[in-house]
């Protein structure tokens, strides 16, 4: 009880919970949006989502690991000086991870995913679960089981008499997640491919009838999802840790967010991700880290029950 009162009466705690929660929420919203996209368009629940995130992190980690010593060995010139400014290279590693994962996702679609698009949910669950296991072990074999992280060299900002801390890299992730989601919305609304994706998600057969190449749309959607995961992973590597076996929490969290928000509703996904993040952090302050997840999952149960109750009322009305 003390800790709950303390939480609400300490402004620095409230502020820190809000900031940390938004950062976590922003990261999860990226992964969750990719999941919702694939789920809505292809009817596949991608259990390997978290592993794509971690893979993206490793790609960024190695991209930096290779390029930094290379640039440092060069004669210092204008470009290398700009690139070696703290924060610039890590920032660049995000689009790199994203594009490499885009290619990876496209290939994965062409090899495995296209076989399961029209199958039932169970098959797709099994297949993506298999991909998840294989990917974890492959990452373990190629990158090792050591805990890694991406060193950005960026400072930390302090507010409220130095009681609230905000590492600049976390601020980055918040801004970047917002830019990315705006970009995705515009892309889906305005571009031809976005239009095709939306058409296929509404009715794949009808879309095919009017001349949309559904196979191409599926491949692109899946690759777009892995690309988003790649960007998310690069940020995860800078803020948290990378380890071949820590992908699952990201899958679970994004799954939860999508259930919260419903399919095909981007603003709802982002809002529920941010809300969930803030809620989770607050729960940590109030009830301790031990009960943090328990609290979040009980909230999920509550929301599901509430939704069901509302739906059942609607059914009565229809009757």
């Amino acid at each position: 009880m003390d800790s709950i009162i303390q939480f609400f009466t300490t402004p620095s705690f409230l502020m820190q919970a809000l900031i940390n929660g938004m950062v976590i929420g922003a990261l999860f919203s990226l992964a969750a949006y990719g999941l919702a996209l694939v789920w809505g368009v292809m009817n596949i629940i991608n259990v390997a989502q978290g592993d794509f995130v971690i893979l993206g992190g490793y790609v960024a980690f190695y991209a930096l690991g290779i390029s930094t010593p290379f640039l440092e060995a060069l004669q210092p010139n204008f470009f290398s000086r700009i690139l070696l400014t703290p924060g610039i290279l890590p920032l660049l590693s995000i689009p790199i991870a994203s594009s490499i994962l885009f290619v990876f996702g496209y290939l994965l679609y062409k090899v495995i995913i296209y076989r399961i698009v029209s199958r039932d949910l169970f098959t797709s669950l099994l297949a993506t679960f298999g991909i998840s296991l294989a990917l974890q072990q492959l990452m373990n074999l190629s990158f090792g089981a050591d805990v890694q992280f991406i060193n950005t060299g960026l400072p930390t900002l302090f507010f409220m008499d130095d009681l609230v801390a905000l590492p600049v890299v976390r601020l980055f992730s918040l801004i970047l997640a917002s830019i990315l989601s705006v970009f995705i919305v515009i892309f889906l609304k305005k571009s031809k491919m976005g239009l095709a994706i939306r058409a296929v998600s509404q009715n794949a057969r009808a879309a095919a009838l009017i001349g949309v190449n559904t196979d191409r749309v599926y491949a692109f959607t899946f690759a777009l999802n892995t690309a988003i995961c790649g960007a998310c992973g690069a940020l995860v590597g800078m803020i948290f840790n990378l380890h071949p076996y820590i992908g699952t929490p990201y899958t679970v969290r994004s799954f939860m967010i999508v259930i919260f928000a419903g399919l095909g509703n981007l603003p709802a996904v982002i809002l529920s991700a941010l809300g969930l993040g803030v809620f989770e952090e607050s729960a940590d302050f109030m009830f301790g880290a031990e009960l943090r997840l328990a609290f979040v999952f009980s909230l999920l149960v509550f929301v599901l029950v509430f939704r069901n109750w509302r739906l059942s009322k609607k059914r009565e009305y229809l009757k």
Binding site: A17, I246, G288, A289
Partner: peptide, 12 residues
């Protein structure tokens, strides 16, 4: 405090 296994954030 007891940290859940899946957590790699100690910010709180």
């Amino acid at each position: 405090e007891k940290l859940p296994k899946s957590l790699d954030d100690m910010a709180a």
